[in-house]
């Protein structure tokens, strides 16, 4: 394994990097990457095309026939925005709710998980591995089996029928949804972030400790800045999972229309026509826009070489 000479340059990190980009892109590599990318996109592209086709065309002919017989309609998109009954809130409210649920439900678990990952990666204490691997194993617990006990806690403050908390009356607000997402996001977040955090060179950490930095300052000055790319990549996923979640929103939202996220509305439209796919196609695209923007935005934080010259293999 490649062992590198560490360059403990204190807390200062080199930012200016020489570009070695061009030398690396072999045409074959690019070709391969592009072919895979196109292959990956065909099904989604089919959906995009379908979303602009009239209902009868969708169920009778393949989407590719669109190119020989272009028959464009915006009806599916109109249905997504306008369909509904006299008590259905406008779509904009569902979109707002999705943001109001997703942003805190990404910030909370990430923060708590970075803390825990830091503790598990850098604090030396008995039972550390046991705790870490228990958390790791918790990932496999099926969400569906956690809903009832958690709901009992939120709705009545009970665990196993025993009153542990006063009735908080938080059902029907965002709070149970945030807490539930935070809990469900934690095991994977801790596992992934732990992997990144423990790769931070020991020399850096020890140098800071020698300089007199306490555990809190160490986190603030070194660990956190260095783990930004990892946090950014996990933030993307947590955002996505929460944004696209239906089950948690449905269960912990308590059926309150005023706080329901976009997915609840989309599911309603889907159900409306058991066999009609047309509204779904447009709905899927509308709900995709925000996650893609998040991906593009956060990708900028995948900065090369924050740990340059000091990473170990």
């Amino acid at each position: 394994m490649t062992q590198l000479a560490p360059k403990p340059s204190g807390l200062k990190l080199t930012k200016g990097r020489r570009k070695v980009k061009d030398a690396f892109s072999s045409p074959w590599a690019s070709f391969f990457a592009i072919v895979i990318a196109l292959l990956w996109t065909i099904p989604t592209f089919g959906l995009l095309v379908t979303s602009f086709r009239p209902k009868v065309d969708i169920v009778t002919t393949g989407w590719w026939t669109f190119f020989s017989n272009p028959n464009v309609t915006l009806e599916n998109y109109q249905s997504v925005f306008l369909q509904g009954n006299n008590v259905t809130p406008p779509l904009s409210q569902y979109i707002f709710n999705s943001f109001a649920i997703t942003i805190p439900a990404a910030v909370f678990p990430l923060t708590i998980a970075v803390f825990a990952a830091y503790a598990l990666a850098w604090f030396e204490f008995k039972g550390r591995d046991f705790i870490f691997f228990s958390i790791f194993a918790l990932q496999v617990i099926p969400l569906q089996l956690t809903l009832i006990p958690l709901l009992q806690l939120f709705a009545r403050g009970q665990i196993a029928g025993v009153q542990v908390l006063p009735d908080m009356e938080i059902t029907g607000s965002y709070i149970p949804i945030w807490i539930a997402h935070t809990i469900f996001g934690l095991p994977l977040a801790i596992f992934l972030l732990h992997n990144f955090l423990r790769q931070i060179p020991r020399e850096l950490v020890e140098a800071a400790r020698v300089d007199g930095a306490g555990w809190f300052m160490l986190f603030r000055k070194i660990i956190f800045p260095l783990s930004i790319p990892a946090i950014a990549s996990f933030a993307i996923f947590q955002f996505l999972w929460v944004w696209n979640d239906l089950l948690v929103g449905l269960t912990f939202g308590g059926g309150v229309r005023e706080i329901a996220p976009l997915t609840v509305r989309l599911a309603e439209m889907v159900g409306t026509r058991g066999s009609g796919w047309e509204v779904l196609t447009a709905g899927a695209f509308i709900s995709m826009i925000v996650p893609l923007i998040v991906f593009f935005t956060l990708q900028r934080y995948f900065i090369r070489g924050l740990l340059a010259g000091s990473v170990k293999g």
């Binding site: 204490f125 228990s134 006990p149 806690l153 196993a160 807490i179 809990i183 986190f219």
Partner: peptide, 20 residues
């Protein structure tokens, strides 16, 4: 440091996943 960094996660995991 344990109280701040580790306990919140363990508390949430206990009520939300370990108990279930």
């Amino acid at each position: 440091k344990y109280l701040v960094f580790l306990v919140p996660a363990l508390f949430l995991l206990t009520i939300g996943l370990i108990y279930p």
